[in-house]
């Protein structure tokens, strides 16, 4: 398959044009055990909103996707750096384990859902349920997030430079949430918490890692009140 041939010397990025090559061939090439030796940099053109682009990567490769992607782009990512030069559909970087995923545009629902690790940066805004059930990932959103973001978030950090929609952090466990703008409402058991120096430091670190220029002191912190951790009849209405 000509589109996937790469030179022996990994200087030039491998280029895959999805108007000629299928997502299956792209992913198979990216899953090859020696992918990083063949080409550590990949350019994917004409993604045209296709689903499941660059999913299940498990190597230190740099994948640049030039355009918009559909559902689950970079799903379950490990080690790789994936950049979407456009908008991303539902579940970008879902269940990511490590590596970095960057969306230059906006992201649809459930961005970074259940992700265990790595860094997800959405330079634009993210829709509802951003960071739902997050389990250790760091998510930095340059714009706003929709309702129910960080729902049941278990671990990791969600940084929102703009505003947050309704029910932020509903039923959150140990995930930490930072929002610079307005929060429409907090979900069950989510409360505002004091920003201490260690929080300012971690926030500055996250903003720096994300390459987003924002003032850490302008953020407020939210997290679990831990009142719903064990069922108590007097809290029944909160469930």
């Amino acid at each position: 398959m000509a589109a996937l041939s790469t030179s022996d010397v990994a200087v030039e990025p491998a280029v895959v044009d999805l108007s000629f090559t299928g997502v299956r061939e792209l992913n198979a090439a990216l899953h090859a055990p020696d992918v990083a030796d063949k080409a550590s940099a990949w350019r994917v053109t004409s993604p045209a909103g296709r689903h499941s682009i660059a999913v299940g990567l498990d190597a230190e490769v740099d994948v640049r996707i030039e355009g918009h992607v559909g559902y689950y782009c970079a799903g379950m990512n490990q080690l790789a750096t994936v950049t979407v030069e456009g908008n991303a559909g539902v579940g970008v970087a879902e269940n990511m384990m490590s590596g970095t995923v960057r969306v230059r545009g906006n992201a649809s629902q459930s961005a970074g859902a259940t992700a265990h690790g790595g860094l997800l940066v959405v330079e634009g805004s993210a829709s509802a349920r951003c960071g739902i059930s997050m389990k250790g990932v760091d998510i930095v959103v340059g714009g706003d997030v929709g309702h129910m973001s960080a729902f049941m978030g278990q671990a990791g950090r969600l940084v929102v430079c703009g505003d947050a929609g309704d029910a932020l952090g509903d039923s959150v466990y140990e995930a930490r949430i930072y929002v610079a703008g307005a929060v429409k409402s907090l979900g069950a058991d989510c409360v505002e918490k004091e920003v201490r120096p260690e929080h300012l430091a971690e926030l500055a670190g996250l903003l720096h890692a994300a390459g987003i220029d924002a003032d850490a002191t302008s953020f407020r912190r939210y997290g679990s009140a831990r009142r719903l951790y064990n069922f108590h009849v007097d809290n029944a209405s909160a469930y």
Partner: peptide, 15 residues
Amino acid sequence: DLEIKIGELREITDW
């Protein structure tokens, strides 16, 4: 959506 999700799982595990 389930169809797309199944597609993703197949892609991750190379069918």
